[in-house]
């Protein structure tokens, strides 16, 4: 599986949960908290469930609690997509 890019993450977020009025996903959002971007706990769960399906990895509960920003998600997913060998 190829790496999760910010563009593909944004596409997943838009597809799953749309975008809050007044929020611009076009800018640099890597370090912004999901909450401030208008994505609540359900939106984060919806996003992680999509990522689990598309990237075929399992994200445990404890990890989800630490995924507070798009940057966190990219780091978490791409660290685990790196071939183990």
């Amino acid at each position: 599986m190829s790496e999760l890019t910010m563009d593909s993450l944004k596409a997943i977020m838009l597809r799953c949960s749309g975008v809050e009025e007044g929020v611009d996903l076009g800018g640099d959002i890597a370090g912004q908290e999901f909450r401030d971007l208008g994505y609540d706990s359900l939106a984060v769960l919806e996003m992680t469930s999509q990522i689990q399906r598309e990237y075929q990895l399992e994200i445990p509960d404890e990890a989800i609690e630490e995924l507070n920003s798009p940057g966190d998600v990219l780091r978490y997913v791409n660290d685990r997509l790196t071939p183990a060998a």
């Binding site: 838009l14 799953c16 949960s17 749309g18 009025e21």
Partner: peptide
Amino acid sequence: VPSRLLRE
């Protein structure tokens, strides 16, 4: 309907 609400 705002897109955030539309999806859910």
